[in-house]
Design a protein around this nucleic acid. Sequence first.
RNA 1: GCCGACGUAGCUCAGCCGGCAGAGCAACCGCCUUGUAAGCGGUAGGUCAUGGGUUCGAUUCCCAUCGUCGGCUCCA
Length: 600
Amino acid sequence: MSDHKEIPYIETELYRIRHSAAHVMAQAVMEQFEPGEVKIAIGPPIEDGFYYDFQLPRPLTPEDFPVIEKRMRQIIAAKHKFEKRVVSAEEAKKEFAGQPFKLDLIRGLEAGGVDENGEPLKEKPEISFYTHDVFTDLCRGPHVENTGQINPSAIKLMSIAGAYWRGDEKNPQLTRIYGTAFKSPKELEEHLWRLEEAKKRDHRKLGKDLGLFYFSDDIGPGVPLFTPKGEMLRHLMEDYVREAQTRYGYEHVWTGHLVKEDLYKKSGHYDNYADVMFPPMVDENVSFRLKPMNCPSHMTLYKEMGRHSYRELPLRFSEFCTLYRYEKSGEVSGLTRVRALTQDDCHTFCTPDQIQQEFSLSLQLIREVLERYRFSDYKVRLSLRGEGGKYVDDPEKWDLAEAALRAALDANKVEYFEAAGEAAFYGPKADFIARDVLGREWQLSTIQVDFIQPARLGLAYIGEDNQEHTPVVLHRAVTGTTERFLGVIIEHFAGAFPVWLAPEQVVVIPIADRHNDYARQVAAQLRAERLRVRVDDSSDRMNAKIRDAQKQKVPYMLVVGDAEMEANQVAPRLRSGENPGAMSLADFLAIARKDIEEGN
RNA sequence: GCCGACGUAGCUCAGCCGGCAGAGCAACCGCCUUGUAAGCGGUAGGUCAUGGGUUCGAUUCCCAUCGUCGGCUCCA
């Protein structure tokens, strides 16, 4: 939760290098085709490099990369100056007469009015060209002085992708080439190494290697099948959150998988979420939906439980129910984007006066859980409503909710940044965005204030004044969804889960067949101590058994041979490769207990 | 959904311009009885995603479908 005071990216040399490299690439690409065949769009620097969008006469393949890169290096070597020229809109249109996308941009600049988000610009922007060699681009800069300042050994074209003009699927689809550039080959290498490392940690690959989950054509996309080991992980994760929630005073409810469609019409979800719900199941005259969220169900339960007094509040309903969301076919991906997802969802019904205290409670819980999963670096985003129609139109309640959330954040001394347009349709949110070991950001936990749904669904409590009031609902998720969170922690831990979470904690490795019985006795004793143990009594050699257990990232391997059997000991080997030497079972148990306790 | 790439044994992959499908690992069966990351030998395993088409002949070429992967407002 630190705020970083850094030089803005746009002012860095790296930004100028990448921006210039994008121009050089555009020139190199255009030269691969006949004059006038290539329509150029935009080519900005991005977080790890740059891209340029083109409309091309034929699709590109990675085989085109070496040719383009080679030409880029030639252009770089010639040390062409980047020259800026401020021009009139007329001049600009003349220069880009055959370039529809550029003309579109120029018209936008001419109108002067709006930037990319539709926000009006304070002053009319000047229109400028940057020219190097024979390539001129409509561009606001900045650039390096000449192409020679791009290190030819530190550039690389990365991938090709489709992208829509201005990101709108109604517009023509362009070919986007991603590239990257660094100051030195060493930095490029490091970047490529990070990408490699991320690939090795990819939860889809590790999920298969560790035998945790599978997807099947016969089941359908977005519905993971969990093996016994994978289910053990899910179970441990949910068990932990459930235990923590109970400790913090939350209660658990169960509300099933099917809901009458009408409920979502009342709650407002139908209008906002119809496209993420699976199509209705119709029985006689009634339409049912697979439940895509719990809130209307929990609110209905609240109502059914009878009249509530303010004395009963807060009521905290948590549920681990699998929800079904119709993610678009191109958007399902591993465990991070699934169609069957299990939320660790909670709805707290409280009075307006209790918001702050309830927010603090959620915050404490979230902090504990993130720490348990060793996410120490996270920040909080205050997600507010933005332009556009998805937000329920009730400015007074929005202001109330926003003020309540800000007050709660401030009271808890939480630093946060704001993001317009990220709110839920019914209210603002505080989202927790954690960084994993590779520095990637994941939105995990969330706390949301809802003044709207409870009123829509007619919830009430009787206040001290003996009048009916509408309760406030706090929506809150800690790990978000079990599936996605599992995907994230697989990558975060590279599959080497902390002992408390490891689906297999111990593998007992008998050296020869004659040690199998002793190994089984050891296993039985450890199981009695609630450890998850497997005996590897295969006919493999000890070395092969160790290798297998290492690859499965099992925290402890207990080697047992003649010496151990004789002395009634075990010889632990840790997955780090450490070898503490033979010890009694009790001593080993003490180590394991300590690791579990400390979250190692 | 859209664009592109890909889909060969459980896994990782080979199979050049069309001519009866291959390796390693895993599995199974033996032998070895083993001291901290792969002991040795053997056996079995594929309607080459699915469905059409072209051809004397298709894993290979073409089309469609399904699935997977990379992208799809980090903004001249």
